[in-house]
């Protein structure tokens, strides 16, 4: 369904180009969920935006993105419009920053259906209310008349999810769709997304910081660091078979639900964006297993992992 090959994205910041994604490749099949986890600033949101062709102005994007065989980067304006209407929907990470504050929730939810599918207002509103009920918002009729500032973080996030489902997309780009939800509601929402995948073959790119959630929901997981995927693995293997030192570091940094420690183990140092990464392996400055070779040459992505020392370490 979705095939990404050697994706590279450069943004312009105050005139200078800045690489934020650097050689990323993965595929997602129909009905499959691919999880993207990784460091803050590593390029997860930009990857999703590249797929939706929603990068900030002035961005340069190279490599290949194919949706059902169609080259997404080469779509002409009217094809791109159809692609966004019929094929792909995105749930944004920060709902409050991506919704127009002066319009009502109802206008936001029904506008696309009315203009793109010629739905009547009543019909679109009924559909919106039904979708809101599915994501656990029982009083949808009242919510449609409200403005975004009158909704809590989690309510607004569910409005965004409902909006993404209004157009029956084939590919869902979900950027941290449940961070503002309590775990009970999260479980409900994930149940709905799973059903869409099973019953309608919807493919999903699922960005999250919650490793347990990624493991439970996704078929495969890609771990991003400084603009590239450093490891892909099947969800079942996340805990037992993580091979990259960064993935292993993530797994041990997580606080536990059943115990506390005085200090959580951390990966020392700061996360880097792609353009800040040194030559050689981008993770080298923070890696406990670094050797000279790591600083000299960037490892290739071989057999699911990008690490010089993977043979010795795992």
């Amino acid at each position: 369904m979705l095939e990404i090959k050697n994706l590279r994205v450069r943004l312009r910041v105050e005139g200078e180009p800045r690489t934020v994604i650097h050689d990323t490749s993965f595929t997602i099949g129909a009905g499959e969920a691919f999880g993207l986890i990784g460091e803050s600033g590593s390029g997860k949101s930009m990857t999703a935006r590249a797929v939706a062709r929603l990068l900030p102005e002035g961005a340069e994007c190279t490599g290949e993105i194919a949706f059902a065989g169609k080259p997404v980067l080469a779509l002409k304006p009217d094809e791109l419009r159809r692609y966004r209407v019929d094929d792909v929907a995105m749930i944004f990470q920060d709902p409050r920053a991506s919704i127009n504050p002066v319009r009502t929730v109802g206008d936001f939810l029904t506008e696309a259906a009315r203009t793109n599918f010629g739905m009547r207002r009543r019909e679109a509103e009924d559909k919106a209310v039904a979708l809101l009920a599915e994501v656990g918002i029982a009083d949808g009729g009242r919510r449609l008349k409200q403005h975004p500032h009158q909704l809590s973080g989690g309510l607004l996030q569910r409005v965004m999810i409902a909006s993404a489902l209004m157009g029956d997309p084939k590919l869902l780009l979900a950027d941290e769709p449940t961070t503002a939800l309590d775990v009970t509601t999260q479980s409900e929402v994930m149940g709905i997304l799973n059903r869409l995948r099973a019953e309608h073959g919807v493919a999903m790119l699922f960005i999250t910081h919650d490793l347990e959630l990624a493991g439970a929901v996704c078929d495969r997981i890609g771990v991003m660091y400084a603009g590239s995927i450093v490891e892909t693995l099947s969800s079942d293997a996340l805990h037992e078979a993580a091979r990259h030192p960064y993935t292993q570091g993530l797994l041990t940094s997580r606080p536990s639900l059943t115990a506390t420690t005085r200090r959580l183990p951390v990966i020392p140092g700061k996360p880097l964006s792609a353009f800040e990464a040194p030559g050689g392996c981008a993770f080298a400055p923070r890696c406990a297993h670094v050797i000279a070779q790591c600083r000299e040459s960037g490892p290739e992505f071989v057999d699911g992992v990008r690490c010089h020392r993977v043979g010795e370490l795992s």
């Binding site: 479980s187 409900e188 997304l193 799973n194 059903r195 493991g215 639900l257």
Partner: peptide, 16 residues
């Protein structure tokens, strides 16, 4: 409802 081993989404149903 906390995700973890054996977690099945949608199981612990919340009310509105």
């Amino acid at each position: 409802s906390v995700p973890g081993p054996g977690w099945v989404p949608g199981k612990a149903l919340a009310s509105g």
